Simulated assay, not measured.
Amino acid sequence: MKKILVLLFSLVSILANAQIGVGAKAPKKAKILFDGTHKMLHEKWQYWNGPRLKASMPIKWEIQNDPVDAGTVVNTNDPAAAGGLYGAADIVTKEEFGDFRLHVEFFIKEKGGNSGVYLQNRYEIQVLDGDTTSHGMAAVINESPSPYYAYNGIGKWNAYDIMFRAAKFKDGKLVEKPMVTMYFNGKKVHKNQKISQVWGGPNSGQDGGNDGGKGITDRPGGLKLQAEGHNVYYRNIWIVPMDIKKADTDF
C-alpha cells in the first residue's frame, strides 16, 4: 500500500508541475527527446526499420530555423518519403516506452500537410491538415472523431499533450486495451479513449502486420514521427515514463 501511495503522489506531482499547450515546459522528471539540435536528433532517434524503409542513416530530416519563434526545428520532409510513402523514412526513438506522459509540438507549412505521432510505434495520433474525419487531424486514428475545432491552422504551432497507458497482458494474453487522454492546444479532446488495434498494416508500425493489426504484443515501443513528403516541423518533444496501475489516463 505504501508503494502505491508513493507512486500516486509521484503521478500527482508530475501532473501538477507539467504545463500543457504550445510552449509547455518539461517537468524535472521528463526526458527531452528533441530540443531542436542535430546532436539530439542523432543521439535519440533512428529510422524505423519497417518493411518499407528506403532511407539510410544518418537521418536526413533537416534542422531548420523556427518559422515563428527563436530556435530551430526538424522538418519531416525526407526525400525517401516523397509522394506520401509512409514507412519509408519515419523516425523512432531509440528508447522504448510503456506508459507515459508526452508533449509534442508541430507546425504544418502548407495546405494538406501530413505526418503523424505514433505512440509506442503502434497507435497513430494523426497530423493532417484539412481532414476532419476519424482519419483526420488529432484523431486517435480510426478510433475517435477528429477534434478539428482545436487546430490552430497552417503556419502556427500546435501541441499535443498525451497521457498513455499501454495494453496490459496476463499470462501472455491481452486483458486491457491501451488507453489515451489528450489535450490539443490546451483543450481536452480525448478522455480515456481505448484503442482496439494498430491501423495501416505492417508499413505503419510495430505489430501492424500481426493479425491485421489486432495482434498487439507486450513489447514496449518508441515514439515515432511520420515522414509523408510534406513540410511538417516538430519541436519541444519530451516524455515522462510512468507506471499507470489503474485503467484511467485522465489528467
Rank of each mutant, 00 (worst) to 15 (best):
residue 193 Q to S: 08
residue 164 F to W: 12
residue 153 G to E: 06
residue 111 K to E: 15
residue 184 F to P: 02
residue 200 G to A: 13
residue 147 P to K: 01
residue 177 K to I: 07
residue 138 A to W: 01
residue 149 Y to T: 06
residue 86 Y to N: 09
residue 151 Y to F: 14
residue 92 V to R: 03
residue 135 H to N: 13
residue 182 M to T: 13
residue 88 A to P: 12
residue 132 T to R: 06
residue 104 V to L: 08
residue 97 F to E: 04
residue 125 I to C: 09
residue 118 Y to W: 10
residue 183 Y to H: 09
residue 89 A to E: 04
residue 199 W to F: 11
residue 128 L to G: 04
residue 90 D to K: 01
residue 170 K to M: 08
residue 170 K to R: 12
residue 164 F to C: 03
residue 163 M to S: 09
residue 170 K to G: 07
residue 151 Y to T: 00
residue 101 R to K: 11
residue 186 G to C: 13
residue 174 L to Y: 09
residue 89 A to G: 07
residue 159 A to F: 01
residue 87 G to C: 10
residue 126 Q to T: 00
residue 98 G to V: 09
residue 183 Y to L: 06
residue 122 R to E: 04
residue 165 R to V: 09
residue 121 N to T: 14
residue 117 V to W: 01
residue 122 R to H: 12
residue 137 M to H: 02
residue 140 V to I: 15
residue 143 E to G: 05
residue 128 L to K: 03
residue 198 V to Q: 00
residue 139 A to K: 02
residue 114 N to Y: 03
residue 188 K to E: 15
residue 193 Q to N: 05
residue 116 G to P: 01
residue 184 F to D: 02
residue 134 S to D: 14
residue 116 G to M: 03
residue 96 E to C: 07
residue 156 K to S: 12
residue 165 R to C: 11
residue 107 F to D: 01
residue 94 K to A: 11
residue 134 S to H: 10
residue 108 I to T: 04
residue 91 I to Y: 06
residue 177 K to H: 14
residue 183 Y to T: 03
residue 193 Q to H: 08
residue 104 V to Y: 01
residue 170 K to W: 03
residue 165 R to G: 13
residue 95 E to A: 15
residue 197 Q to I: 07
residue 137 M to A: 07
residue 175 V to W: 14
residue 100 F to Q: 10
residue 185 N to Q: 08
residue 145 P to G: 07
residue 159 A to L: 04
residue 180 V to S: 04
residue 107 F to Y: 15
residue 101 R to H: 14
residue 98 G to R: 14
residue 160 Y to V: 04
residue 198 V to R: 00
residue 113 G to R: 00
residue 173 K to N: 12
residue 183 Y to I: 04
residue 132 T to K: 11
